[in-house]
Design a protein around this nucleic acid. Sequence first.
DNA 1: CCTCGGCCCTAGACCGTTCTAGGGCTAGAC
DNA 2: GTCTAGCCCTAGAACGGTCTAGGGCCGAGG
Lengths: 340, 340
Amino acid sequence: MSERSRPVTIADVAALAGVSRALVSIVLRGVPGASPANREKVLRAAAELDYHPDQRARLLGAARSRTLGVVHDLRRAYQGEVVEALYASVLDGAAGGDGWRLVLEPTGSRRPEAVALQALLDQRCEAVVLVGPTSAKAQLASLAARVPVVVLTRAVRGLDVDVVRTDDEAGARLATEHLLALGHTRIAHLHGGRAPGAAERRAGYGAALRRAGLAPELVAGGPTESDGESAAPRLLRPGGPTAVLAFNDACAVGLLAAARAGGAAVPRDLSIVGFDDSAAAALSAVALTTVGQDAAALAAHAVRRAVARAEDPRLPASETVVPPHLVARRTSAAPGASAG
Amino acid sequence: MSERSRPVTIADVAALAGVSRALVSIVLRGVPGASPANREKVLRAAAELDYHPDQRARLLGAARSRTLGVVHDLRRAYQGEVVEALYASVLDGAAGGDGWRLVLEPTGSRRPEAVALQALLDQRCEAVVLVGPTSAKAQLASLAARVPVVVLTRAVRGLDVDVVRTDDEAGARLATEHLLALGHTRIAHLHGGRAPGAAERRAGYGAALRRAGLAPELVAGGPTESDGESAAPRLLRPGGPTAVLAFNDACAVGLLAAARAGGAAVPRDLSIVGFDDSAAAALSAVALTTVGQDAAALAAHAVRRAVARAEDPRLPASETVVPPHLVARRTSAAPGASAG
DNA sequence: CCTCGGCCCTAGACCGTTCTAGGGCTAGAC
DNA sequence: GTCTAGCCCTAGAACGGTCTAGGGCCGAGG
């Protein structure tokens, strides 16, 4: 490979354009203070040299970094979707995120959240967005004392931290009403125990059933596929429910697999509704009716809050709740019917 | 929220420890040149102030950044796994990546690869790792002229670019031999057309069948679920194949859904094998037999090559091929048998 | 006793930007 | 004709680190 040449600096551009470095900076940042003639000369010189400012120096010199730190878990595909939506929010500036950079610090099996958070602080982010954080409250609190924090898709109470999350209660109500509308009268909820959001989903399910004058049937499940699988015998009994709202998609998929393995037809013998609209739910071999979170809205609100509190740190923390929507696929139908 | 205080700088630590800034730098970087007594004093002062060096300044001042840029697609869950493995490689230093940082620049629907690449260059990375890049050859070539490039999970020929990829041919051979060992004699390949890796997989399939003295049956498929679904009628005909090797998991899942919808039992009437061992394949409701890529090995080789070529740019580019492995689940069995 | 080499340590340059303070010029107001 | 306001532009400091060059000190060798 040929010797790679020294990167072009602002001084090179200034020399070629015959102006000072400061003026180049003014022109390239697009701020007022340069004559049209010089603006033209600088832009031409920058283009000719293929100049791209060194981000390290730019951020060091600037008073503000306009950088949003993002922490997400590489193992959770849905968080990838949310992060993608964060980029979209910053790019189109709809949430006031115009001109802001995003810096990703992922977590994973070998990289705990604390490491990612410190890495963000070391980059002097002006605010951080945590997607589904798992840190203890005390850690979040100490982070919040240093930088504005927005927590996404997790309810956190009693901390000086912004929260943007899906309305789990409304989602569970929506799903339950969908099953009621299909004509089900025996609807069970395979609930998530103490998992985040589980209490809200139980409440939404209960409220919908109460309003319909029906008795709730709660069955202990959990957030994983095997939770769904192991609950199958308790649901697939004669005279059992004709429809189940599972805590989440993974749990629903586990139940679905166990039902099929046990010879039950879905949705004819049992309608199953999940929660999250994960990638798994959309697979043609699964086609799970589920409750979808609005990743774009979540991301837009997160960016809006993060930017707002970076601009004005005295702003109080707030909680934003985003309504979810039902995604009807092929695991729900009228009782006894074979198609949804 | 209370006023956030000015971040601690190296000068604060130096003042508290009663030494120069340079000595603090020496101690905290762990290089020789400080007496044990001063070392102790500096460490104590840094701990007391909770000092963490500003990465922007550190990278700007240092001669080398020891930073590896990573580009990946947020929408592809498997790439997340690979990136996680990259972090593991850098953390345990097994691949010579000790002391190297990783910087993520994701791509997505609103963020094309070119943007991510430029962002990495702007941070003056010493080398970049591209996970499944989609850029045109010319773009990769111009990138490779500026910085050492390692391409992961894609075959790229004729460029000064390192390639680390799974041995697709061996994987397809492995899968085909698995079906042969189960007793199948009519094995079709739902191939991927011109998709990356498709040619190699066809070759491996063909080689295994030839060695067994059987005739190959190639059916046109593709990389998506709907490719698999639409191919179903051509495969589920009377006297058709008893087993199918699909181009990838998505294609296999599509075929699986269509087969079930058409009343065929998998694996009794048709064994299906995928490729990639994606998250979808592992779902209990899918349980797809498939060919798994070794993300840890891919990542380790990528880091090793990236670091090596960053250290010595004259090193020629090379291609590393990592052997895959078969993951037997429940979509493959002997012809006519109902369990794998 | 003087010199030399090695170890510690520091002053100050440097990295590539942004930003502040101020200078020169022109035009309009008085 | 001066004063002033405003626009352009630049020199140089600043950001917070790293790195280079060199100074002080101490012990060993001549």
